[in-house]
């Protein structure tokens, strides 16, 4: 089972490799990937250095081209595919059907993975991607229970990758327009959810307020932990009841599922967080490496260690973690 780590820049990429990642995924410095944030990602020169470093260490590089191509800019997405292939990427992670079609026709020998943004949640949809674009792998959205993942793994004609740790997207990825509804920009169209330029913090007599494009997302009292106002993680009012109506600030953590995931033949566990610091990548990669190695060395005696959970909780939103949709009760 491959440990696939995120990198938003070269230092994070090196850190990931140095701390046990089997593969690293990165994006380019434009809107062709779903972490299109200022100061993040790889230009052509950095891309080449990234590939060199990864390959010198005998590891793999995946390039995410996982937003949806604009009608007057399809060539930008195609060029991203060309660039990734030129530097020798080991896999392309793609969401857009048109971009997948381009990659499959032009570079049939370069591995294609269906991005989580393509929202592939069932066997027939997996068949669609296999039949049309001969993909080698599908990244499953974070909406399936562990039983549903197991059932898919049993029947899937292609390899499956799942999200193992990181910020929890609670909607079927690629099918959420909440961000563009509030700001005009979404992961699909510009590669960012709840973009930072729309965020405003304000100290008021009611407490510290966070706003996204002027809409009040949350209000914090003295001593409360204030988090980034991702719009689905704020507190809203439903019939006079104020609560986290969609989800609390929390991160996904599936350390305890490692034996299940390995048993069902999941080929890769993915860590979220290309927008996070090299320090985050270091801690997560190291912890997950230990956990996977621990499991491999003695599958029957695998137990999640308290210190791993503590380390990961400290890196999590609201310092809390959840099994998310893998666990029916969360749903």
């Amino acid at each position: 089972m491959e440990l696939l780590c995120p990198a938003g820049n070269l230092p994070a990429l090196k850190t990931a490799i140095d701390n046990g990642a089997d593969a690293v995924y990165i994006g380019m410095k434009d809107d062709t990937n779903a972490r299109h944030f200022a100061g993040l990602n790889f230009n052509d020169g950095k891309l080449l250095k990234a590939a060199d470093y990864v390959h010198q260490h005998g590891k793999k590089l995946h390039v995410a081209i996982n937003t949806f191509a604009h009608p007057n800019g399809e060539s930008r997405w195609q060029k991203a595919v060309d660039n990734a292939v030129a530097i020798g990427t080991d896999a392309l992670i793609i969401a857009d059907l048109g971009v997948l079609d381009y990659a499959a026709n032009k570079y049939p020998d370069v591995e294609r993975h269906v991005s989580v943004q393509a929202s592939t949640t069932n066997l027939e949809a997996i068949k669609f991607f296999k039949n049309n674009f001969d993909v080698q792998r599908v990244v499953l959205p974070r909406v399936l229970s562990i039983q549903q993942v197991r059932q898919l793994a049993k029947n899937s004609p292609v390899d499956l990758e799942v999200f193992a740790f990181g910020s929890l997207c609670i909607m079927a990825e690629g099918r959420c327009y909440l961000s563009s509804y509030m700001t005009g920009e979404s992961p699909n169209t510009v590669g960012a959810c709840s973009p930072a330029k729309y965020v405003r913090w304000q100290e008021t007599e009611n407490g510290l307020e966070s706003r996204l494009n002027d809409v009040l997302i949350d209000r914090y009292q003295e001593g409360e932990n204030a988090g980034y106002p991702t719009l689905c993680k704020g507190r809203f009012e439903v019939d006079n009841n104020v609560y986290h109506a969609l989800e609390e600030p929390t991160s996904l953590n599936t350390l305890e599922l490692i034996p299940d995931l390995a048993d069902m033949g999941i080929v890769s566990v993915k860590i979220e967080g290309r927008q996070r610091s090299p320090a985050y990548v270091e801690q997560v990669a190291k912890t997950w490496r230990q956990a996977i190695d621990h499991y491999k060395s003695s599958p029957d005696n695998y137990e999640v260690e308290g210190r791993w959970m503590q380390t990961l909780a400290n890196l999590s939103e609201g310092t809390q973690t959840t099994l998310g949709a893998y666990h029916r009760k969360w749903q």
Partner: peptide
Amino acid sequence: NCYNLSTLKV
């Protein structure tokens, strides 16, 4: 998610 011409063609 059909956002462009290539996808329409698919």
